[in-house]
Amino acid sequence: MRCLIIAEHDGQNLNTATARAVAAASQLGVEAIDVAVLAHGGQALAEQAAILEGVSQVLLLDREENAHPLAAVLAPQIAALAEGYSHLFMPSTTFGKDVLPRVAALMGLPQISDLMTVKGPHHFERPVYAGNAIIELQCPPEQPVLATVRTASFKPVGTGDAAPIETRALEIDLPGHTRFVALEADAGDRPDLQSAERVVSGGRGLGSEENFRLVEQLADKLHAAVGASRAAVDAGYAPNDLQVGQTGKIIAPELYIALGISGAIQHLTGIKDAGTIVAINKDPDAPIFEVADLGLVGDLFEIVPQLLEKLD
């Protein structure tokens, strides 16, 4: 059994999601994990992929059409590359979600989205209903497994010795019906709440719109997005579009810091998939402490200025 992983990159750097997909593949018990880099001028990218721990070989498909990640262009190449592999993984990012189903349809195979647990080479788990239920899947062993890997479920592998890089050229006609026009990176000073890796949120404990600036200051210090509980939004401390929770945004940052948020279940459903939750609240019985990985009981008006100072 051999697993092929399609690397995700921006032309210069490999995305960490690739290393997470390698981590998932490492649990399969396969003989080889190969990484394919589809790029234009991708030698440096291939070298980054080659040092990922556990990678056996890197396949480089260097081609002008691969300058931008267009599913219609990449999918036929990947389908051809996947020949002979028992597993084909891509990260469950917008890139993997766009490309892999197209590959799967070309190959006439089903695909697993958001693979979160490897229980065996053909035995997996994935979330459904926005993570409110988990299904266990058994796939037919005689056919290749295609899956996007839920990035939050796997820690990226480290780096080690470089694996060999093989340049491949495929004789495939690629369609011209899909053309890249532009990419506009996230504008603004703060990251987008929905996709930010770090989020600092404020609740009613802030007490006023003015005090809510503390949340913003800490967020800026951490390059984090700003969120708010419904109570803070209802009280007018923060605008509606910052609301995190059941009726606001459902987010999964790596770090979530809750300031003066009691943690009603409606708020907690919005952060249940966050990596690390930090709670700072003066009420030791606040429900937020029942889910927080790190809790600090105390006055946020003393704690946050200290944090700001020490983070300098």
Binding site: R204, G207, S208, R230, D234, A235, T247
Partner: peptide, 14 residues
């Protein structure tokens, strides 16, 4: 709710 704006009735209509 009592905050810096004073005491007020907060209606959580939702």
């Amino acid at each position: 709710v009592e905050d810096e704006q004073g005491l007020r009735l907060q209606i959580n209509a939702a």
